[in-house]
Design a protein around this nucleic acid. Structure first.
Length: 978
RNA sequence: GCCCGGGUGGUGGAAUGGUAGACACGAGGGACUUAAAAUCCCUUGGUCCGCAAGGGCCGUGCGGGUUCAAGUCCCGCCCCGGGCACCA
């Protein structure tokens, strides 16, 4: 299977430099067959794994299952950089390790292939997003293949594939056809709700699940009334219960772009792209009632083996707070507020409504109408982000109306202020300036009364928000501690019917419609403007062809351009699902990816169960991971999956950052054109700013980074530098660690690394870089170490023992793999078993950097012992296989095995090889280590203390003094206190 | 402001309360070589004393504390990264 050297070097002939080739050829001739040729080995094994479907997984069998999942990537046009595979390498190590341990491992990969960039590209070029997606996925696949992952590609899924999104649409229909029953605390079919309405009507008991910022309970009705409702009314009532429902939601509408923008696409009230004005507008929107699951999403976190920071982020996002809802009567109506501090009710000096509160117009006194309307319209058009950013600017307006205090009956002025958010709670607050700093600022600004609510508060200076204070405001709560006062206040509110205890969540329902083309069509049609679900038989509802990927002239989504976008003559929904739809359930599809009858068979779901290990970036902390859990809980409620959390263990890999080369430039205008002058990096002159430089052509001189002429010349093509003036023959650059990104010119492509060092080296190096969870900058320089390690490991098999280690190993010619069948020495066994122990213990901890360093120690030591014994190297090769699979597979083969190394059982470490008869004790004086003494482990503490004190060097250090105390910790340390 | 991480040599990092700096990069020195590459060996936290062997002192962001013993535990700060935020 090995080609002669001369032919082998034909692979090198692509290299341009002939002299180099000649030199390499000579080198290869010396090395014969024994050199570590990563290119050949990796290409060969990747080919064989593919041919023989080594990593194909069958559902079922008697082996225990293990499901290792990576967050699948969006296939962007930029391809992979070295940061992307970090998590995949880690999960691949675990997958391979678990296979060695006898598990049936599911380790799939696919693409989250619906998304904005492909659509944006389509708008600009007319290229169909399906085509770009296809090309990008092919490129990703080629890059991933070169790293040697053990994915079962037969199970690949793509969210944009109709065979996949058929089931995304199917799940949407289940959501549409379900409501949340608060008594059973789970989702149930809407048909059951209808049956109940038909027999008992509705008496408000289900109202607690109604959510959304415009949702209001429709009111009570009897069975007879329900039966007399017309179809439209019935459907409208049911809308309020469905888990997928059509409502109106505030969106960032950009008329110039004719599209809805995400919050982060809006900067300072204008679109980030193009700078067009953006207005907040109410539009019909499909939403998912995730809020019905708020409590379960919160409770479920406790049992998960996820990082504390992610769990905490989800808890904050869900934002549960306990308090009371209080009604303040006003005229024939009332204003409902939510408060966590009903104990401060006697400190209320005004109410504040959010500008978008529906009752603002009603409660505005005629003489104040103009002023209030003006305020509302400006406040409303400020983005939420803006309103939240400017904490110092207090603004508001008095409505001219007064509400009644529920306990005292006092007149409470009603104000409008944009510090109150429309989307949280009821969109209204009872303002207690003595107990809430925001209310206090508002009161100070407008000269409203500030009542002290707690003892010891200095309300002239600030509000007192302590939760262990004693209430001092006049009324029945006076003298009570805050917690008791809260309970008492709620009791009293409930007694007089002015309020109730209430739990409020920050979590809002999830907007589920996008005015976009490249997403799953929502399987809904409209009859008389009432939304109806498509029958299952009509799925998949395939994305139609359109002439342009832009919204229509009248502002409808791109799907409105499609011809015959109807179902049985009725218009179909024209918005599409958001990016997170497919990723909310894709883990189930991997279990049974080809199933045409069901999203995945019952057997497959039962066999594979929850994801045992989920690896991905922490940027999905509150988005994807929340929806992922929500959909799983929903499918569980319908009895479709037996578990209600998707992933038991979650690990977030850190970001691999790039080192950017920053230059300081100064803009100037010459002949009406912008010019850039490169200035010293510490310059603070006006008009200076920083720009990234190409990392190529950077030279280190005098401890500083410089770019040479060639590099500077190349950079001239970058728009920002066009026509700049060089202030020196070369430019000084400042290295900065930041996110790896094409636009920062700091991307490192794994293909280049693999070309030079091989996939095994890349894999080892990415793991060696540091703890998986930590973010760290990529520095290709360090890679030599892992490359050398692999060569050294390889050489253990190929240079016989008995030769002088000082002879460079590449110069020793030994054409056959020289493995000794001799029994290993106890030293050799100790190295082997110490390594097996460390690796076996550290893989489950996901501590891969320490595994790699242990391998290095083992190889260094075995090298020093000139060990080439099969009994040592064979188990070591298996242990290394998850990390560096190609070289391990190759050596395994050379050792005479026909089966893939991935089928080899994991070698067990044995304590007996690690036992020591003695221990070298550090002897410290007052905690400072001074000398070392070796003692047999059988020696007891007392005898050891005597032996230590008898030692001449210890005696000398004691200078005749008697130690106060001697601490002897067996197998650890001896400490002499003087 | 709140929540979660983190701060250790020139660099990435290691260390169940028990010898701080494993392992690796880089740097310096040496071997091999016509030469280079590759490989191998040695040194490498700072500082001071010594011709040397060797030894002293300082040292894990800062200040306290607990302990025979603290990078590790406790209290109070500072800084960096990430997330959330007029959340009532």
């Amino acid at each position: 299977m090995y080609r002669p050297a001369s032919i082998r070097f034909s692979t090198q002939s692509r290299q341009k430099h002939r002299p180099l080739r000649r030199r390499l050829a000579k080198f290869a001739a010396i090395q014969g067959q024994m050199a570590y040729d990563h290119k050949k080995i990796e290409a060969e094994w990747q080919h064989r794994w593919k041919e023989q479907k080594t990593f194909r997984t069958e559902t079922g069998g008697t082996r225990p299952k293990y499901y290792v999942l990576d967050m699948f990537p969006y296939p962007s046009g930029a391809g992979l950089h070295v940061g992307h595979p970090l998590g995949y390498i880690a999960s691949d190590i675990v997958a391979r390790y678990k296979r060695h341990c006898g598990f049936n491992v599911l380790h799939p990969m696919g693409y989250d292939s619906f998304g904005l960039p492909a659509e944006q590209y389509a708008i600009q070029t007319g290229q169909h997003p399906a085509k770009t997606t296809e090309e990008n996925a092919a490129r990703y696949r080629a890059q991933l293949d070169r790293i040697g992952f053990s994915f079962d590609w037969d199970r690949e899924v793509r969210t944009s594939d109709p065979a996949f999104y058929k089931w995304t649409q199917w799940i949407f229909l289940q959501l549409f056809n379900s409501w949340y029953d608060p008594r059973a605390d789970k989702a149930r079919p809407v048909s059951e709700l209808v049956a109940r309405f038909e027999s008992q009507g509705c008496h408000g008991q289900d109202a607690s699940v109604l959510t959304g910022d415009v949702e209001e309970f429709i009111g009570e009705f009897s069975a007879a009334e329900w039966n007399s409702f017309d179809e439209r009314t019935k459907q409208m009532v049911l809308q309020r219960f469905r888990l997928a429902y059509l409502s109106e939601a505030w969106v960032n509408w950009c008329p110039a772009l004719g599209t809805v923008l995400a919050n982060d696409e809006v900067k300072d009230g204008v679109s980030e792209r193009g700078g067009h004005p953006v207005e907040r507008k109410r539009m019909p929107q499909w939403s998912l009632r995730i809020t019905a699951y708020a409590q379960r999403l919160l409770d479920g976190l406790d049992g998960l083996d996820w990082s504390e920071s992610i769990k905490e982020a989800q808890r904050n996002w869900i934002g549960r707070s306990e308090g009371a809802s209080v009604r303040f009567p006003i005229g024939d109506d009332f204003i409902e507020v939510f408060t966590t501090r009903p104990d401060t009710l006697f400190g209320v000096s005004f109410l504040t409504l959010a500008p978008e509160h529906v009752l603002v117009p009603k409660f505005t006194a005629p003489e104040r109408k103009a002023e209030v309307e003006a305020y509302v319209s400006t406040a409303k058009n400020r983005s939420e982000r803006e309103r939240q950013a400017e904490v110092d600017k207090v603004s508001g307006v008095f409505t001219g109306s007064y509400a009644k205090h529920p306990f005292t009956g006092a007149d409470i002025p009603v104000w409008v202020g944009d510090y109150v958010l429309g989307g949280y709670g009821t969109g209204a607050v009872m303002a207690v300036p003595g107990g809430d700093q925001r209310d206090w600022r508002f009161a100070k600004h407008f000269g409203l009364p500030i009542i002290a609510v707690t003892e010891g508060a200095d309300v002239e200076k600030e509000a007192d928000e302590r939760k262990d204070a004693t209430i001092c405001s006049e009324g029945f709560l006076k003298g009570l501690k805050v917690p008791q006062a809260i309970r008492r206040a709620i009791e009293e509110l409930e007694k007089i019917g002015a309020g109730t205890g209430k739990v409020n969540f920050r979590l809002r329902d999830a907007a589920f419609g996008r005015q976009r083309y490249w997403g799953e069509p929502i399987p809904i049609f409209y009859k008389d403007d009432i939304p109806y679900p498509l029958p299952e038989s009509a799925l998949p509802l395939v994305l139609p062809e359109v002439d342009k990927f832009l919204p229509t002239e009248s502002g409808e989504p791109p799907l409105a351009r499609a011809k015959n976008w109807t179902y049985e003559g009725h218009p179909l929904e024209t918005t599409t699902m958001p990016g997170w739809a497919g990723s909310s359930w894709y883990f189930l599809r991997y279990m049974d990816p080809k199933n045409a009858e069901r999203f995945a068979s019952k057997e497959a779901i039962e066999h594979w169960g929850q994801v045992d290990l989920y690896v991905g970036g922490s940027e999905h902390a509150t988005g994807h991971l929340l929806y992922f859990r929500f959909w799983t809980k929903f499918l569980h409620d319908l009895g479709l999956v037996p578990f209600d959390e998707p992933a038991k263990k979650l690990v977030n890999q850190g970001m691999i950052q790039g080192i950017s080369m920053m230059a300081k430039v100064q803009a100037s205008t010459k002949d009406g054109e912008e010019h850039y002058l490169v200035v010293p990096p510490n310059s603070t002159a006006e008009g200076t700013f920083e720009r990234n430089y190409l990392v190529d052509h950077v030279v280190l001189r005098d401890g500083k980074h410089w770019i040479d002429e060639a590099g500077a010349g190349k950079t001239r093509d970058v728009a920002a530098f066009r026509g700049f003036h060089l202030s020196a023959p070369s430019i000084e650059l400042k290295p900065v660690v930041e996110k790896m990104s094409k636009s920062k010119f700091n991307v490192v492509n794994p293909d280049d690394i693999i070309e030079k060092y091989g996939a095994d080296t890349l894999r080892l190096y990415e793991m060696f870089l540091g703890p998986l969870e930590q973010s760290k900058p990529w520095d290709t320089n360090g890679i030599e170490g892992t490359f050398r390690f692999l060569k050294k490991f390889w050489n253990l098999f190929h240079v016989g023992a008995g030769q002088e280690p000082s002879v460079p190993s590449t110069h020793r010619v030994d054409p056959t793999a020289a493995l000794s069948e001799e029994a290993p020495s106890s030293d050799e066994l100790k190295i082997l078993h110490a390594t097996l122990k460390k690796v076996t213990e550290d893989i489950p901890k996901m501590s891969f950097n320490t595994c790699v360093s242990q391998f290095m120690i083992a190889v260094n030591e075995l090298h020093a012992l000139k060990c080439n014994k099969r009994a040592v190297l064979e188990p070591l090769t298996i242990a290394l296989a998850p990390f560096a699979p190609h070289i391990a597979e190759e050596l395994w083969h050379r050792m005479g095995h026909a089966e893939s190394i991935s089928t080899a059982p994991w070698p067990q470490w044995e304590q007996r090889h690690l036992e020591e008869s003695s221990f070298t004790y550090p002897i410290s004086f007052n905690g400072k280590m001074r000398l070392q003494l070796e003692f047999p482990l059988t020696l007891d503490a007392k005898a050891m203390e005597a032996a230590v004190l008898a030692n001449p060097e210890v005696q000398q250090r004691l200078e005749g003094k008697t130690p106060k105390k001697v601490v002897v910790v067996p197998k650890r340390i001896v400490n002499i206190v003087v």
